[in-house]
Design a protein around this nucleic acid. Structure first.
Ligand SMILES: [Zn+2]
Ligand SMILES: [Zn+2]
Ligand SMILES: [Zn+2]
Ligand SMILES: [Zn+2]
Lengths: 141, 141
DNA sequence: TGCTCAAACGATAATGATTCTCAATATAGA
DNA sequence: TCTATATTGAGAATCATTATCGTTTGAGCA
């Protein structure tokens, strides 16, 4: 249950936090900005202060429940931590985000860091390109 | 000469642009924010409006003279385009930035994009870790 | 060299995202 | 239920970046 997750993270169980966590768990789009979280909740009739949304997301991140990405769009994008690590590819036309995991790249990263005298703790890899979805505005056909 | 670069980029040759370009070329630190450019110029006695710095950097980027990065720190970091493509590793303690190029990773990226139905146009790869420089505040020694 | 005019400059206002403030409110535990 | 404390939300504040606009400058030409 979501209440458990919050308690395990050392956070009080409050309505706003439960609503935000639930939204992150149940939305089709896994990657969203704070504004998007705020807007989707509002559209669902759950008006939660924007400041509270930002605070909750920051706390969730500190607790390891969610991760934060900085795509080239500028705004910070949050994503519920579920399953194993993955990286992203973003369509520069329609914004669609797909996920991937590549063992070869992950291994090379460790080797590169070591060879440069760094102890690797994290990485951010995002590919940008044009997708071939029929819904993408630039789609041919 | 820098004037040539500006002319080739279709930009008028002005004092501020020459100063900014020169700073990017001659600084030991190759990666800097707009604020840093502004500050370093000011410290060198060249007071150039911050708006002008931002404008020049945007124009240089559009002309392909410099590239722009979004490290997790938040601020946009600019870097003079010289030599071939490379990615970055950033020390999370002291902020030191090192560059690397890995053919294997570059190739895998193309394969991954293709397999997901994307036409790859760009990518951003940044590793984060702790460096072993004696100057790094976390250095053991 | 001096003239003209669009382009560029710089001070400052505006914007957009995010964080802070603080009085009112809700939660966890006794 | 009662209390002490953490959280909330509205709005102010902040930070990076961009837009505005009157003044200045560079490039081509007489
Ligand atoms: Zn698309
Ligand atoms: Zn993801
Ligand atoms: Zn370091
Ligand atoms: Zn670099």
């Amino acid at each position: 249950m979501d209440s458990e997750e919050l308690r395990n993270a050392g956070l009080k169980v409050t309505i706003p936090r439960l609503k935000i966590l639930s939204l992150l768990e149940n939305s089709a789009e896994r990657h969203m900005t704070a504004e998007t979280v705020y807007r989707l909740l509002a559209e669902g009739g759950e008006v939660i202060g924007l400041a509270t949304v930002y605070r909750a997301l920051a706390q969730f991140e500190a607790a390891g429940l969610i991760t934060r990405h900085h795509f080239d769009s500028g705004q910070t994008v949050y994503e519920l931590e579920r399953g194993p690590h993955h990286d992203h590819i973003v369509c520069i036309r329609c914004g669609r985000v797909e996920e991937f995991y590549d063992k070869v790249i992950e291994e090379r990263q460790r080797e590169i860091a070591a060879s440069l005298g760094f102890t690797l703790s994290d990485h951010a890899l995002t590919l940008y390109g044009e997708c071939n979805s029929p819904d993408c505005p630039g789609h041919q056909g």
